[in-house]
Amino acid sequence: MESNEKLHNKSDNPNTRQAVRSARKEAQKAERAASPKPKTDEEKKPLFNPFFGYKKRRFPIWQRLIALIALCAIALFAGMMVGYGGLGHRSPWAVFEPATWQHIFDFLKTK
């Protein structure tokens, strides 16, 4: 029973959350104190930086958008080939022929 009381007593146990947090804060303070201070005005950071804490991305947003559009196009063409060739029991490459599309548009226009 005494061993359980020792484990749950926060003042004796060095691994409590509060002890870990305080040790982490002390380490951060020591790290800040050890870092060199900027000496000139050019080296000082601006007072307001909207990108504070910004990490450079591996792939920028514009590359992600291009990749998404390319993947959608590939999925569209693959789906057309599977639908026309696999489900329609025809040649999958025939979906790219203009005559096939003309037939589809003519079918849709006539009711």
Rank of each mutant, 00 (worst) to 15 (best):
G53R: 01
E42F: 03
A23M: 03
V95G: 02
F105C: 05
I69V: 15
Q102G: 07
L76I: 08
I61A: 12
W62Y: 14
N49W: 00
T16L: 01
I66C: 07
A94K: 15
M1Y: 08
P98I: 01
R90E: 07
Q63S: 04
V82D: 02
W62P: 06
E26H: 10
L65G: 12
Y54V: 05
K56F: 03
P98A: 00
L7E: 06
D12H: 12
Y54G: 00
L108N: 10
F48N: 09
R90I: 00
N9T: 05
H89D: 10
R24E: 08
T100V: 06
K25H: 07
C72D: 11
R57K: 15
A70H: 09
T100W: 03
S22D: 14
A23E: 04
K25W: 12
T100Q: 02
G83D: 05
G85V: 00
S11V: 08
F52Y: 10
T110L: 11
R90W: 00
E26R: 15
A99K: 10
K45W: 02
I69Y: 14
V20Q: 07
N9E: 03
L108K: 09
S91C: 07
A27H: 08
R17P: 02
Y54R: 14
M1F: 13
K44R: 08
A94T: 12
F105H: 12
R90P: 02
P46K: 05
M1H: 08
M1R: 06
G79H: 01
Y54H: 11
K37I: 04
R17Y: 11
S91D: 15
K111S: 08
T100N: 06
S35H: 08
S11A: 10
R57M: 13
W101R: 05
A30Q: 09
K6N: 10
D106G: 14
K109A: 11
A78I: 04
M1L: 11
T100P: 10
R32K: 13
E31Y: 00
M1C: 04
E31D: 07
A27F: 03
L65F: 13
K6T: 09
N49R: 03
A33T: 09
